[in-house]
Nucleic acid binder design. Structure first.
Length: 394
DNA sequence: TCTGGGGTCCTGATGCCA
DNA sequence: TCTGTGGCATCAGGACCC
């Protein structure tokens, strides 16, 4: 198989080119800061020197993305806003416009599907493409097709796009990062040792911060270090599945196909509070948030046409420790009240004496609404008029 | 000084059952 | 009746990704 990995560089504001900009933070917060001065003015019409600055940001939130000039100060994705404000106080802050991002994402993917139909969705700004059967796909090792894709995306969205071309998904993803932004990189099977092995271990998609630390402790720093270490030794240290996978990945071996269709496994809603809340002292507030989360998950399920059987909650305490509980009920549901009742049961099984910073509600074990699976489970099940059992938040 | 929100997948503990 | 064993489902936590 020959694979492309393509990712678009989202959100370009021409008037901010070359300036340090961070996008993210609490949406409401940034909107408030903007509204103080620019009620109803579109972002593209606001002059650069009028945007709110990071130093004036107060509250919780993380950075979604940052321009390259902002990254020079050491800020980047997933960093807390308050920490970023210390590093780059004069960087401009922009809110994330999720509706706009989703619209661009749909266009980006449909443009690609028109050219090469075998596409795997990998989130809002990324896809894998199997171009083995695309006519002319092999010309110049894939470069001709990659250029066509870039050009078509730009015409439709004004967005640039980086593309990696390789024998499989794993290498294509790494290759796409070689030439950002708006680049094309081709890596052949024989190039793995020269081009991939010198890279830090973290560049493998699937090795995160925890594994990186562990690898460093074992004196493994580059992908080549992993490749050259003994497979069984890796298995001893990282477990059968992960150790063997890591060794294969370092050798550029990956036989995963490009998967064009998939069903969701779960749907959830969660929120971090502006200040930590206490189950007893802030009961009314927590209760309202809890109910609202259940209503929103139910709406998501209904809108997308799914029902679920496993209802779960997620709590994050003030020390950032997380607790989850779930409960599998007899019938599939997309009903807010039913979800709320089951989630309330879960709530009784966690420690509520400590302050909370986050609350979430999740519905898993999904089936298509009205599907055979759904009906078979629900038809014939005893319908009991259950009294809502009070929980701590109600 | 902290650290969003929406997901997937894996692992280990535990309990049930044949 | 007692004990062992293997398979399976459920649950909790954690790593990772965008």
């Amino acid at each position: 198989m020959d694979a492309f990995f393509a990712s678009v560089e989202l959100l370009r504001y021409p008037q901010l080119k070359g300036l340090p900009v961070v996008i993210g933070g609490g949406r409401r917060k940034v909107d408030e800061m903007l509204r103080e001065r620019f009620e109803g003015v579109p972002l593209s019409k606001i002059p650069p020197d009028a945007f709110p600055l990071l130093k004036d940001y107060v509250g919780r939130g993380v950075i979604t993305t940052a321009t390259y000039p902002a990254r020079q100060f050491g800020v980047g994705s997933a960093m807390g806003m308050m920490k970023a404000a210390k590093l780059a106080p004069h960087a401009i802050v922009l809110p994330v416009d999720f509706d706009e991002v989703r619209r661009l994402s749909r266009t980006f993917k449909s443009v690609i599907r028109e050219i090469a139909p075998v596409v795997e969705d990998r989130g809002i700004d990324e896809v894998y493409i199997d171009f083995t059967d695309v006519p002319g796909g092999q010309r110049e090792g894939g470069r001709v097709l990659a250029r066509l894709i870039q050009k078509s995306i730009f015409e439709a969205t004004q967005l640039t796009c980086s593309i990696g071309v390789a024998p499989n998904k794993l290498i294509a993803k790494m290759a796409s990062e070689f030439n950002k932004p708006n680049g094309i990189s081709i890596v052949y099977e024989d190039d793995v040792q020269k081009q991939i092995w010198p890279l830090p271990v973290r560049k493998i998609n699937g090795i995160g911060p925890k594994s990186e630390v562990k690898l460093h402790k074992l004196h493994l720093h580059t992908i080549g270090d992993i490749a050259k270490s003994d497979r069984e030794w890796l298995v001893d240290n990282f477990g059968q599945s992960y150790g063997a996978w890591m060794h294969d990945a370092a050798w550029g071996r990956d036989d995963r196909p490009v998967v064009t269709e998939s069903e969701p496994v779960s749907m959830s809603r969660e929120t971090t509070f502006e200040r930590d809340l206490h189950a007893v002292r802030d009961r009314a507030e927590l209760g309202a948030i809890f109910t609202d989360l259940c209503v929103r998950v139910a709406e998501d399920l209904q809108r997308k046409g799914y029902v679920g059987k496993t209802i779960g909650i997620k709590l994050r305490y003030d020390d950032f420790k997380t607790a989850t509980r779930d409960l599998t009920i007899e019938q599939f549901t997309d009903d807010a009240k039913t979800i709320r009742r089951a989630a309330g049961q879960c709530l009784k099984r966690v420690d509520l004496s400590r302050r909370l910073r986050l609350l979430g509600v999740r519905v898993g074990k999904l089936a298509k609404s009205g599907s055979e699976e759904h009906l078979a489970a629900n038809v014939g099940a005893v319908l009991r008029a259950e009294e809502p059992t009070p929980d701590l938040f109600s």
